[in-house]
Amino acid sequence: SRSVIRSIIKSSKLNIDHKDYLLDLLNDVKGSKDLKEFHKMLTAILA
């Protein structure tokens, strides 16, 4: 869910600018399909 993804971003080791950017992107995501794609992208970034 959106709140879980937000929590993953906030607890990541990324610097604050990257976190803010990803949180802004997350706010722009519409629909469950796009949310799944965003989660895939985030997982790849944090891997």
Rank of each mutant, 00 (worst) to 15 (best):
E37T: 12
L23G: 01
L23P: 00
L25T: 04
T43A: 10
D24W: 15
I16N: 12
I9M: 01
L22N: 00
Y21V: 05
S7V: 07
S3H: 11
G31K: 06
K33E: 12
L42P: 05
L35W: 05
V29I: 12
K19P: 01
A47D: 08
R6T: 08
K10I: 14
R2F: 15
K30W: 07
D28Q: 14
S1G: 07
R2V: 08
D28G: 13
S1P: 11
D28A: 14
K30P: 03
M41N: 04
F38P: 00
D17T: 11
K19H: 02
F38D: 00
H39D: 04
K40H: 07
S11F: 11
I16P: 14
N15C: 08
M41Q: 06
I45K: 03
I45F: 11
D28S: 14
M41K: 06
Y21W: 09
L35Y: 05
A44F: 14
L26R: 01
K36D: 10
I16K: 12
N27W: 05
K33P: 05
S32R: 09
M41R: 09
I45E: 03
Y21Q: 08
D17G: 05
I8H: 03
E37A: 14
I9L: 03
S3F: 09
K30A: 06
V4E: 11
L26F: 03
S1I: 15
H39G: 08
R6E: 13
E37R: 15
S1R: 12
V29D: 02
D24E: 13
T43F: 14
N27V: 06
M41T: 06
K30I: 08
K33I: 07
L25N: 02
K30R: 11
K13Q: 09
K10V: 12
I9N: 00
V4T: 08
D34K: 12
L26C: 01
L25K: 10
S32E: 13
N27A: 12
I8S: 04
G31M: 05
A47T: 10
N15Y: 06
K10W: 06
I8N: 03
K13A: 11
I16R: 14
K10F: 07
K19Q: 08
L14S: 01
R2M: 11
H18L: 14
S12Y: 02
R2D: 05
I45T: 04
I8Q: 06
K40P: 00
S7M: 14
L26M: 04
Y21E: 05
K19E: 03
L35P: 01
K40V: 08
K36N: 08
D28W: 08
A47R: 13
S11Y: 11
I5E: 02
S1A: 14
L22A: 03
D24K: 15
D17S: 11
L42F: 05
R6Q: 11
T43S: 10
L23Q: 03
K33S: 07
D20P: 01
K40C: 04
K19F: 03
D34F: 09
D24V: 12
A47P: 04
H18E: 13
D17C: 06
K10G: 05
K30E: 07
D28H: 10
L46P: 00
L22K: 00
V4R: 14
L35I: 05
T43W: 15
F38N: 00
K19D: 01
V4Y: 14
E37I: 13
K10Q: 11
S32A: 13
D34L: 14
S32Q: 09
I16G: 11
R2Y: 12
E37D: 08
T43D: 07
N27Q: 10
S7T: 09
D20A: 15
D17M: 12
L22E: 00
K30N: 07
I9K: 00
S1Q: 09
K36Q: 10
L46N: 01
S7H: 13
A47L: 12
L35N: 01
A47I: 09
D17I: 11
S11A: 12
L25A: 06
I5H: 01
S11L: 13
K13Y: 06
K13S: 13
D24P: 01
D34R: 10
I8M: 15
V4G: 06
L26Q: 00
N27P: 02
Y21I: 06
S32W: 15
L46R: 02
D28Y: 13
F38C: 01
K33H: 11
K30Q: 08
A47V: 07
I45L: 11
A44E: 07
H39K: 12
L35V: 04
K40D: 07
V29M: 08
V4K: 11
D20H: 15
A47S: 09
S11E: 09
V4I: 10
A44W: 12
H18W: 12
I9S: 00
H39P: 01
D34Q: 15
F38R: 00
L42C: 02
K13E: 06
D34A: 15
S3C: 09
D17N: 10
A44T: 10
L42E: 00
F38K: 00
Y21L: 08
L35S: 02
K36L: 13
K36W: 10
L25Y: 04
V4A: 13
N15G: 11
G31D: 10
L22I: 03
D28N: 14
I5Q: 02
I8D: 02
K36G: 08
K40Q: 09
H39E: 08
N15V: 05
L25G: 02
L14A: 02
L23K: 01
A44V: 10
L14T: 02
D28F: 11
N15W: 08
L46S: 01
L23H: 02
D34T: 06
S11W: 09
F38E: 01
K33M: 07
F38I: 02
D28R: 15
L46W: 04
L22D: 00
T43C: 09
E37K: 15
I45S: 03
R2T: 06
K33N: 10
S11G: 10
L14D: 01
K19L: 04
K13P: 09
N27D: 07
F38H: 01
V4F: 13
S3A: 12
K19V: 05
S32L: 12
K36S: 08
N15F: 09
D20R: 15
D24L: 14
I8K: 07
V29E: 03
H18C: 12
K10M: 15
S12R: 02
D34N: 13
I16H: 10
L26N: 00
I45Y: 10
L25M: 12
V29Q: 05
K19N: 01
S7Y: 13
H18D: 10
L35H: 02
L23T: 03
M41G: 03
K33D: 11
S32I: 12
S32D: 13
I16W: 09
L22G: 00
I9P: 01
N15M: 09
I9C: 01
K13N: 14
I5A: 04
A44Q: 08
K19G: 01
S32H: 10
S32K: 11
H39A: 12
S11K: 12
N15E: 07
L42S: 00
K19C: 03
K30F: 06
K10A: 14
L22M: 04
L23R: 03
L14H: 01
K36Y: 13
K33Q: 08
A47Q: 11
H18T: 13
Y21D: 03
N27G: 10
I16V: 10
R2W: 13
D17L: 11
I45V: 09
I9E: 00
M41W: 14
K13T: 15
D20L: 15
Y21T: 05
K10T: 09
N15T: 15
R6I: 07
S7W: 15
T43N: 10
S11C: 06
I5T: 03
D24T: 14
R6F: 04
S1F: 15
S11H: 13
N15Q: 09
K36A: 13
K13I: 10
A44Y: 11
L42G: 00
L26G: 00
H39M: 15
K19W: 03
K13V: 08
I9R: 03
L25F: 04
D17V: 13
A47C: 08
M41E: 04
D28C: 10
S1T: 12
T43M: 15
S3I: 07
D20W: 15
S12I: 04
S32M: 12
M41D: 02
D28I: 08
K36P: 03
K36V: 10
S12L: 06
K30G: 06
L22Y: 04
I45Q: 03
T43L: 15
L14K: 01
L14N: 01
G31T: 13
N15A: 14
F38A: 00
E37M: 13
T43V: 12
K40T: 06
H39S: 09
D24Q: 15
K13R: 12
A47H: 09
D17R: 14
S32Y: 13
L23D: 02
F38Q: 00
I45P: 00
D24H: 14
I5N: 02
V29G: 02
S12V: 03
I16C: 06
M41H: 05
L46T: 03
S12F: 06
I9W: 00
S3Y: 08
D17Y: 09
I16Y: 08
H18S: 08
D34S: 12
A44K: 15
K33R: 08
I9H: 00
K19T: 03
S7F: 11
R6L: 09
N27I: 04
M41V: 05
K33T: 08
K33C: 04
L22S: 00
L25S: 03
I8T: 05
S3M: 15
Y21S: 05
I9G: 00
A47Y: 11
L35C: 03
R6M: 14
E37P: 03
L26W: 02
K30H: 11
L22H: 00
K36R: 12
K40L: 10
R6W: 05
G31F: 06
L23M: 07
K13D: 07
G31N: 12
R2K: 12
L22Q: 00
S12K: 02
K40R: 13
R2N: 05
I5K: 01
L46E: 01
H18G: 04
N27R: 10
I8C: 05
N15L: 07
I16F: 07
L14P: 00
K36C: 06
L23C: 03
V29R: 04
